[in-house]
Amino acid sequence: MELTTVWFSLIAVLWIGYFCLEGFDFGVGMLLPVLSRSETERRVVINTIGPVWDGNEVWVLVAGGATFAAFPEWYATLFSGFYLPLLLILVALIVRGLAFEYRAKRDDDTWRARWDKAIVIGSLVPAVLWGVAFANIVRGVPIDADKEYVGTTLTLLNPYALLGGVTTLLLFLTHGALFLALKTDGEIRHRARSLGLLLGLAAAVAAVVFLTWTQAITGDLTSSALFVAAALALLGGLFAAWRAREGWAFLGTFAAIALAVAGLFVALFPDVMPTTLEGGLSLTTTNAAATSYTLTIMTWVAVLFTPIVLMYQGWTYWVFRKRIAVHHIPTPQLAAEPTR
């Protein structure tokens, strides 16, 4: 297998990891005012992701860095053409991170309410815009013969891409609700499971329409099989939620997101950014790649350090694996903040 194909596959794995892990973070953030009825319950909800949310964001940083190093032409065209949506995502992630850290710095309801809104918005914006961005990457955008994006921001807001945004939004909401059902106990657990079922049905409809449209645009038997498997995993997760098997339910949405993202990358390959222009030049794993020497060095670095990162993150999830309930939350103090 060529190193360009290896690195395309590794970047796909990084995005799968990001969407599966950060996806439930986004869902929890958006559901904060929906599933909590008091400050104590809000602290329960936030503390479910307190030890892991910043670690989950590392996946997107590594994915961006790997794209820059392995496929510099892809990185340059993507970040210039998608500048505004990517900037909005970055700002939203920064605001959300600040909200997690600062909401408990003052014992004031208004102060906390404002930061709670920042958590919701900081989770909502990326949840939608990542779907819009990836839908456009798979569908193709106007790229000329010089590998330059020649469209506008409005070009990215086409019906297919907007459906992609709605799909990721609903999937992440479902994923987050079932994560809360898995990680909490008491009233929040029951509310989250019930809401996860409703959201999951809406997500299933949106996902089926979006993935069918994707298959009609570009795809083969492999991507089709992955999309079908994703739909079955989501339905299986919802069935498990209905049976109050939260662990299996969360695993179902996790697998559904992983299989769907994998299918998108399979449908995209060997392109990394197809053009919609006649006479334009699609970016591929060949013409957008770095030199063989660069890819070789990157491969050795990945082989050495990837297992360490995976073991550390796995250890973090194991340490903070227990459920959280209202009675676990101590009396509010000025210095209190999400469990780290």
Score class of each variant (00 low, 15 high):
207 A>P: 03
242 W>G: 06
194 S>D: 15
18 Y>T: 01
4 T>C: 09
80 S>Q: 07
72 P>D: 02
337 E>Q: 12
158 N>R: 09
318 W>S: 11
55 G>W: 02
313 Q>M: 13
286 T>L: 14
82 F>W: 08
131 G>A: 02
43 R>P: 02
304 L>C: 12
43 R>Q: 09
270 P>K: 10
334 L>Q: 14
249 A>E: 01
225 A>E: 14
223 S>M: 12
297 I>V: 15
70 A>H: 06
229 A>G: 13
197 L>G: 05
214 T>Y: 00
45 V>S: 05
216 A>C: 10
160 Y>R: 06
215 Q>W: 14
187 E>V: 10
110 T>N: 13
109 D>N: 07
79 F>K: 04
10 L>K: 05
7 W>Q: 09
310 L>Y: 13
333 Q>K: 09
103 R>A: 09
14 L>Y: 06
162 L>V: 12
33 P>D: 11
315 W>A: 09
275 T>F: 02
197 L>T: 08
305 F>L: 15
112 R>E: 11
323 R>T: 11
8 F>D: 03
305 F>T: 13
324 I>C: 06
79 F>E: 07
305 F>A: 14
247 G>M: 06
220 D>F: 15
47 N>E: 05
114 R>T: 05
270 P>H: 10
312 Y>N: 10
323 R>I: 05
215 Q>P: 07
158 N>M: 11
275 T>H: 03
56 N>I: 03
114 R>L: 09
